[in-house]
């Protein structure tokens, strides 16, 4: 299993070489409720750290997803168009959102690891 790192906005990235898989945490999906639609970026789009990369919609809310690292979109989860509920069911696995070729893998270092994120959640 790859090393998963979390942001304070509840996104995670899992780095494999210089490609990061990006998604939202289990806590985030539970807060959003039933997800009905996900707006994903085009492959090839360059995203700066901290900028909007996707929008997740539940029935009564639309929430922006910010990329915790900068990079270029190399793949988006093709199943989410048909089955956005995957993000509710398996946010860390089949419900991933985007794969990014990371411009500076060092950016991940500033993110929280699993135990740190768990501690962070307790403060909310």
């Amino acid at each position: 299993m790859s090393d998963r790192r979390y942001s304070k906005d509840h996104e995670y990235v899992a780095l494999d070489g210089n490609v990061a898989t990006l998604g939202i945490s289990d806590y985030a999906q539970s807060q959003l409720g039933d997800i009905v639609f996900i707006e994903l970026p085009d492959v090839g789009r360059k995203v700066a750290k901290g900028k909007e990369i996707a929008v997740i919609e539940s029935v009564k809310a639309a929430s922006e997803v910010y990329s915790p690292v900068g990079g270029e979109v190399v793949e988006v989860n093709p199943q989410l168009g048909e089955t956005p509920a995957l993000v509710n069911e398996d946010p860390l696995g089949r419900g991933w959102l985007v794969k990014l070729r990371v411009s500076d893998p060092g950016e991940c270092d500033s993110l929280m690891d699993e135990p740190a994120y768990s501690e962070f959640l307790k403060t909310l």
Binding site: V36, F37, E57, V59, K60, A61
Partner: peptide, 12 residues
Amino acid sequence: LSTREQHIRRDK
């Protein structure tokens, strides 16, 4: 599909 609308999406 109310997330398109002003009462939810506001300036977007």
